[in-house]
Simulated scan of single mutants.
Amino acid sequence: MLGDSKYVIEGITGWLPGWKTKGGKSVANMELWQALEMTVARHESVTWSE
């Protein structure tokens, strides 16, 4: 099992595009991922770290 920060980093940087193409149907808390994605999009650059 991934730790919380690693899960979020991998989710937003790697898994989200695949989830979106599947319609987010099997993703827990998809509304939270969408909110995070919108927040990140407002910034020119985001650096992630565990």
Rank of each mutant, 00 (worst) to 15 (best):
V40G: 00
W15A: 05
M38S: 10
L36H: 07
G23S: 05
G24F: 11
W33P: 05
T13N: 06
M30N: 01
G14Y: 05
K20A: 06
K25N: 04
W33L: 11
R42A: 06
W19C: 10
T13W: 05
V8Y: 04
M30Y: 07
V40M: 04
A41D: 00
G11F: 05
E10M: 10
I12S: 11
L2C: 13
G3Y: 10
A28C: 12
T47A: 09
L36W: 15
R42T: 04
K20R: 09
L36F: 15
G14W: 03
W33A: 11
R42N: 02
S5I: 09
V46S: 08
K22G: 12
G14N: 11
S49E: 10
G24C: 04
N29F: 14
W48T: 01
A35T: 08
H43I: 00
M1W: 15
T39G: 02
G14T: 09
W33T: 08
A41S: 08
T21E: 15
V8E: 02
T13G: 11
T13I: 07
S49Y: 00
W19K: 03
V40P: 00
V27A: 03
G24N: 07
T21N: 13
V8K: 06
L32H: 07
S45Q: 09
E31R: 05
K25D: 00
W33Q: 07
M30K: 00
E44F: 06
W15Q: 07
T39Y: 05
T47G: 03
W15T: 03
E44C: 02
T21Q: 14
P17K: 12
